[in-house]
């Protein structure tokens, strides 16, 4: 039971959330210009990182808003959470600061 920091509501129990897999996978602006392989990749191919990872979460049973979290998928350590549209923080910098 992880404690997920919603950027609007604050830290809440993970039972309130849904997981939304890899973050920063934008829907192509002009889908018709994408090849079949590119469309398949957009639909189905997601990174399965072991370690710090930018991923989406939805505060389903709270504010119902989507946001992004930098979280270590192995240790479950959480380094940052931020609103959609905000740039992805530098993961190396975040995790390095932690180790120091």
């Amino acid at each position: 039971m992880q404690l997920i920091p919603c950027p609007w509501c604050g830290p809440r129990d993970d039972a309130e959330f849904h997981y939304g897999a890899e973050a920063h996978v934008a829907r192509p602006a002009v889908p018709s210009e994408r090849s079949d392989a590119e469309w398949e990749a957009y639909l189905y191919l997601r990174r399965n990182t072991k370690g710090p990872f930018a991923e989406r979460w939805l505060h389903t049973n709270g504010c119902r808003r989507w946001f992004n979290v930098i979280r270590d998928t192995y240790t479950h350590e959480i380094f940052a959470s931020y609103k959609p549209g905000e740039p992805m923080p530098d993961i190396d910098q975040l995790t390095a600061k932690k180790d120091a």
Binding site: P31, S32, R34, D36, W39, L43
Partner: peptide
């Protein structure tokens, strides 16, 4: 329509 959700998907082979 140029696009709607599902349009590009429908034209996969």
């Amino acid at each position: 329509k140029v696009d709607f959700i599902g349009k590009r998907g429908l034209f996969r082979p």
